[in-house]
Design a binder for these strands. Structure first.
Lengths: 208, 208
DNA sequence: GTCTATAGGGAGATAGAC
DNA sequence: GTCTATCTCCCTATAGAC
C-alpha cells in the first residue's frame, strides 16, 4: 500500500486519505454508524483528531467516501461471484445474493451506512455513480435470466426486488448471528437458494 | 387517551410513560435512531429533560420500550392484514408483506431501530417476547401454505426468509422514495407480489 | 500536512428543591 | 413526579504553531 521509499510511521506522510477511509470502514464494521466519529477514525489511523479535516471538509464527506468505497467493493465482489458461478445465467445472477450475504456477514455492519444514511442528495456524485455501477452490473446479469422481450423497466423492477430482499436477508442475518459464524458458506448458500426461488416464482408468474 | 377527569397539560400528571414512548416512536420516524435523544423526546412530550429518567433508567431502556411497542403494532397489523385477505392461505400469508411495507412507508424510519440496534441480549425480555409473538403469527400463516409434512425448522426458515426479504424491500423502498408517496397501495401490492413469487418458487423447488 | 489547543454544543445522567 | 441546575463526557470544527 505504501511506496517503498516512505518509512511510514502510521499514515503520516503516507496516503492518509486512503488510510482514513480504510479505518472508517473498519470502524463502521465494528460499531455501525452510531459509533462512528471523525475523532475515532483519526486515532485508529494514528493521527490527531484535526488531521482528517485536511482531507475531508466535514464528517459527512468522510462518511460519503467510506460509503462509495464500500459500494465499489461490493460491486466488484458481485461481478466476481457471477464470473465464478459458471455459464448458466440463472446461476450467475443468483450467485450475487451469496456474495452480498458473505460480504455483510464478514464485514458485520459497515453496509448499514448506505441504507441508514441519506446520501441521495446531489452532494454525493461519487456515491450515485457507484450506485449506478452496482445496479448496472445486476441489470446485465438479470437481462440474461429474464425473457428477451422484458422491458427495461421490468428488468429494473426485478433487480430492485432482488437487491433489496437480498439485503434484507443478509442484514437481518447479521443481527441475529451474534458472532461471526463459521458456516458463512451455508448461510450464503441459503441466500442463493432464496434468490433462485424468487427468480423461479417470477418466471412462473410470467407464464400465466 | 387521557382519562376524562385529568386536565392534562402536556403529559404532566397524565400517563407520561406512554407519552414518552409515543413521542419516541414519532421522533424515530422522523430522524431515525441517529437523531434520537432522551432530551428531544422530553421536549416533544412537554416535560423537562430530567423527567424521562423517572420512568426509564436510561436511554437504552426508552429505546427498548419504543421497539417493543413498534413490534407489537406491526404484529397486530400483519394479523389484521391476513384476516382481511380472505380464506386462501397463500393470499393470507402474502398479505403480510403488503402490511409490513405499508407500515414502513407510513412510519418512515422508526422500524430501523429494531434492526440497527442490538437488543438481542437478555436485558430486553419484552422485545424478545414481542419478537416471538410476531414470528409465531407468521409461523401459523406459513403452516397453512406449506405442505402438511413440513418440519418446524423448515417452516421457521421459510418465515425467516419471508420476513427478512420483505423487510429489505420495504426499507430500501423507504430510502429511495424521498417523500411519502401517494401510491403506497401500489408499492405494497408489489411487495405482496414479490412474496407470492417467493412462495411459488419455494413450493416449486420442493416438487423436484 | 500534521500538530496542540480550544471553542462550542449536545446529550446522558444526577442532585436537590418543590 | 416533575422542575431547575449542573456535572461530565464526547464530538465537530477551527486557529495558529511548526
Amino acid at each position: 500500500m505504501s511506496s517503498p521509499t516512505t518509512p511510514r510511521r502510521g499514515y503520516h506522510h503516507g496516503d492518509l486519505r486512503a488510510g482514513l477511509i480504510r479505518e472508517g470502514i473498519a470502524l463502521l464494521g465494528e460499531t455501525g454508524v452510531a459509533g462512528f466519529s471523525v475523532a475515532k477514525v483519526a486515532v485508529r489511523a494514528g493521527v490527531s483528531s484535526a488531521a482528517p479535516y485536511r482531507h475531508f471538509p466535514d464528517r459527512e464527506a468522510l462518511l460519503a467516501a467510506c460509503a462509495a468505497a464500500i459500494l465499489a467493493e461490493i460491486t466488484d465482489l458481485l461481478a466476481a461471484a457471477a464470473e465464478q458461478a459458471g455459464p448458466d445465467p440463472l446461476d450467475r445472477f443468483a450467485a450475487t445474493a451469496g456474495a452480498y450475504t458473505r460480504y455483510v456477514l464478514e464485514h458485520r455492519a459497515g453496509i448499514d451506512l448506505i441504507y441508514s444514511y441519506d446520501f441521495s442528495g446531489p452532494h454525493h456524485p461519487t456515491i450515485q455513480e457507484q450506485s449506478r455501477h452496482l445496479t448496472g452490473t445486476l441489470m446485465d446479469l438479470a437481462s440474461a435470466v429474464l425473457p428477451a422481450d422484458t422491458s427495461w423497466a421490468d428488468t429494473a423492477d426485478f433487480v430492485y426486488v432482488h437487491l433489496s430482499t437480498t439485503h434484507g436477508y443478509a442484514t437481518l442475518l447479521m443481527k441475529v448471528t451474534r458472532r461471526p459464524p463459521e458456516d458463512i458458506d451455508s448461510l450464503a448458500a441459503r441466500a442463493v437458494t432464496a434468490a433462485r426461488d424468487h427468480i423461479t416464482g417470477y418466471l412462473q408468474r410470467l407464464l400465466r
